[in-house]
Amino acid sequence: MASIALGPAAESRETPAHLNEPAWVRVLLIGLAVLFLTLILLVPLAAVFAEAFKKGAAVYLQSLTSKDALAAIRLTLAVAAIAVPLNVLFGVSAAWAVTKFRFRGKQLFLTLTDLPFAVSPVIAGLVFILLFGSRGWLGPFLAEHDLKIVFALPGIVLSTLFVTFPFVARELIPLMEAQGKDEEEAAVSLGAGGWRVFFRVTLPGIKWGLLYGIILCNARAMGEFGAVSVVSGHIRGRTNTLPLHVEILYNEYQFAAAFAAASLLVLLALVTLAVKSFVEWRHRRHADALAARERQGALREEAAWR
């Protein structure tokens, strides 16, 4: 099964009529989906932006450029910049191990990978307190060496890592599972090395899934509230991430400023999506029909080879 590495839009532009639903079904389905998304997503978002701009654009900008807000933004970006690449590394390697090989305990491994999703954020923070807090297992050791983990950046990074742990792996595993490993095996039997196989054969096929995984992981890393709140210590301008800053503002009855900071997180998420769309668009521009046909031909050759 060849993965046709075309952008999704290009793919369905070519959808022939007999592989499509009747027009009225399409309209109905689109309508249903839009209605659902409106009720669950759009209206709450609109509410956030409406609140954010309630007091005008000046207040909006002002609340985003205050000293504490800027410190919070910096911290949030730093945390995401450390946590996301690490989890991508894990996600890719776990997906490779799980989908390309059979081994005992695979199901156990997968379930353990999922587990951080099910852990209440409160507990996700608490575990690091139990480990690194001053009464924790490693507390005395850390105090002796004057190392700070909880209530400082490392603790915030750790809890963010924990919370966003499964995203990339979870995104890749079903996808790589669906694609099987025939192509990789073919490449290896043709003498390609492991890294080469991964970069040239596997990665092109999973890049959308990987990209989604990164986007999700990043969004969640920046938006995480509960777990970070437990280990942050809430020191203003120091250990407050953007979501914690939102809470502070909200608790000060500065609703407009609070929602302004929240809307910034929404915008950050939208920026990552814009990047994704850009990559998609560039990719499509290059991959013209000719290349597609060439690939098909090559694949047929490859099949013959085997």
């Binding site: 969004a219 979501p243 939102v246 929240a262 950050l268």
Partner: peptide, 13 residues
């Protein structure tokens, strides 16, 4: 693009 918003938005918000 909106689908990921629930992750990005702090849960409290």
């Amino acid at each position: 693009g909106l689908i990921d918003i629930p992750f990005a938005l702090p849960t409290a918000v």
